[in-house]
Computed example of a mutant assay.
Amino acid sequence: MSCIALSNFKSKKPKYELEQDKILQWLALAHTFAEAKTNKITLFSEKFHAFRQEIQEKFLHVGCSSEHINKRGFSLPDYLHNNWHEMEVFCLHESSQGENIQKRSKLFEKIADEAFDFFYPTSSNPPDGMIHVSCTGYVAPSSAQKKASSHKWLNATHITHAYHMGCYASIPAIRIASGYVYSPLSKEKNRIDIIHTEVSSIHTNPLIHATDELVAQSLFSDGFIKYSVSNIPPTHKPYLQVLSLHESLIENSSKYMSWNLTPWGFKISLGKEIPVLISKNIHLFLSELSKSVNKKTSDLLENAIFAIHPGGPKIIAQIQKQLNLQDSQLTASRAILKKRGNMSSATLPHIWQEILDSSDYPDQTLIVSLAFGPGLSICGAVLKKEC
């Protein structure tokens, strides 16, 4: 029997972890030091403390609180102290924006290499292909290419890069992998590994005090995960069977989200209209997704659980309200946001892993997966848990 199956999930926690309240305090202090350096404000003066109080209140007002995120993970020790002269990126005693994009890219390369070392130790069997997914760093040769080369998988493993798509990238990556395992041009390609390396923490800029930047800085964390796509049912269970994939763009929405390179790093832009635009279009999208698996929308709404990329708690809440979902249908989505924060493209695979590992979700559980990103893009999948 042929199918598209997701299995062999393996995640790697970032090296450092910190409570959300402490992260927000660190960010407020970093913003204050950046502002002081740029505008020549005397350190710890009345004006310095007034700005710090103002930015702290702004983070509390627009940022994601510890009610929704307990901890976030980071690959840099910078967030654990405020000795700016000892920072790897946020050397605010020298530059109010921190290091430039060249330095941040070198750090990404090192961190991504470490993730591939973790996922593919010396004894590893070669996959038929690797798809490296990231929107937070790109170097050539990539970590995937270097790993295949060092393991002498020179002809055994084909490498593909799925870069700069944003938080929804796991869905297109599965589509690419599915094409490989069924293409007549890819002889005997039965196992394609998808590897996500997201290092959002290196792209913070403490000199940008705009609301959308503060929202992003209060949400994003680092995430690393690997899983396999195959065209035959795995011998070991549980695994996820892919029943359908669907992608769509929201009309006249391209200006509301961007993710672009700057001299200091990657800069995000988030319009306040995003949750409303998604909620207005989610019914039509779900209708098309339902048709692709020959089901009524009501069947999925009543019988499936929902793995929703938590771009933020408002996204989950808006979709829950629009679709009239029960809290129990969103447990895994909220759990990953609470434990890990928004890990960009690595988030949805972490939710899938949570569902696979939990006995709360029995055999044949249907999973509607939804993720969003620049475009504005809505991407979705219908999966089924096989135990």
Rank of each mutant, 00 (worst) to 15 (best):
E302V: 14
L154I: 15
Q145C: 02
Q217M: 11
L243F: 11
G73S: 07
N39S: 03
P172F: 05
T204H: 11
A332S: 14
W153K: 07
A50M: 08
D327F: 04
I195W: 00
I4W: 00
I174M: 12
E198P: 08
T32Y: 01
E86I: 07
T32E: 02
T331N: 04
A28M: 10
N83S: 08
I319A: 01
P172M: 01
Y182V: 12
E302R: 04
V229S: 05
N155C: 03
S95P: 00
S143H: 05
I355F: 05
S45C: 02
I250F: 01
Q217N: 09
P362A: 11
P77F: 04
C135D: 13
G375E: 13
E288S: 12
K187S: 09
L240E: 10
N8Q: 07
P234I: 14
K267R: 07
A148N: 08
S258A: 09
L245N: 08
S298G: 01
L60D: 14
N190S: 12
N342P: 10
S333D: 12
V199T: 11
T157M: 00
K321L: 05
K338A: 14
A210Y: 01
S45H: 03
S170G: 15
Y163R: 06
Y239C: 05
N155Y: 03
S344M: 05
V242E: 00
F220N: 06
M1V: 14
L277Q: 11
K321I: 02
M343Q: 15
I355P: 02
A30R: 11
L240K: 02
V293T: 10
E94F: 11
I174H: 03
K338Y: 15
Q353E: 15
G179T: 10
S287C: 10
K338P: 00
K295I: 01
V382T: 14
T235K: 07
I208H: 07
I69P: 00
L284W: 11
S149H: 14
E88I: 14
Y168C: 05
Y79H: 06
M165C: 07
P184L: 00
K110N: 13
I202H: 10
E54H: 10
M343H: 09
D117A: 03
T262K: 10
L286I: 08
Y163Q: 11
L43P: 00
K103A: 13
V215E: 06
K321D: 06
M1Q: 14
N281I: 13
F118Q: 04
S228C: 01
K187A: 13
L277D: 01
H309N: 07
S45P: 06
H68D: 10
F306G: 04
Y138P: 00
K58A: 06
S11D: 08
W264N: 11
F33S: 05
Q326F: 08
H151N: 15
S369F: 13
W26D: 05
G137N: 09
S358W: 00
N252A: 02
S201G: 01
K189H: 11
